[in-house]
């Protein structure tokens, strides 16, 4: 019985953890997904190592600092370097639509949801994950 496993992560000095905690709880309580939350102020490398240790299917990065254009490519590289090239990366946060499009277009992320996206739609996307 394979269960979808996701690591929800934050990085840098981003203090906005309300949404990611709501996301984690809602996912747990409404779907059969196993969510791991690694907490605030963690480096990308720590999160990548944790993702590989847990052998998660996906990493969800929540970011509200406006640094998404550099953080997502860096996260992707950190995952690849840690041996997690097969791990799907999605994002969530205060991210303008054109930035989200550019990040997905360049392959830095597999999907990016605005902070206003219904959590239900994120869960749906996780369950019908690519790859």
């Amino acid at each position: 019985m394979s269960q979808v496993k996701v690591l929800l992560a934050m990085t840098g000095l981003d203090p906005n953890n309300k949404r990611i905690r709501l996301l984690a709880r809602t996912i747990k309580e409404t779907s059969g997904i196993e969510v791991h939350y690694s907490g605030m102020y963690k480096s990308l490398e720590d999160n990548a190592a944790e993702a590989v240790r847990l052998q998660v299917d996906m990493v969800g990065l929540s970011i509200y600092t406006g640094l998404h254009l550099t953080v997502f490519p860096d996260m992707r590289r950190a995952l690849d370097a840690a041996g997690g090239a097969d791990i799907v990366l999605f994002g969530e946060g205060l991210i303008p639509a054109q930035d989200a499009e550019a990040l997905v277009g360049s392959g830095a992320a597999d999907a990016i949801f605005p902070s206003t996206a219904p959590i239900k739609s994120i869960i749906e996307w996780i369950l019908h994950r690519p790859g």
Binding site: A24, T30, G32, I33, E34, Y37, S38, G39, K42, E50
Partner: peptide, 14 residues
């Protein structure tokens, strides 16, 4: 009920 889980022990051990 859902089989879902939320794991965060690691926050204290990172």
């Amino acid at each position: 009920f859902t089989g879902g889980a939320l794991l965060g022990d690691r926050i204290r051990m990172l």
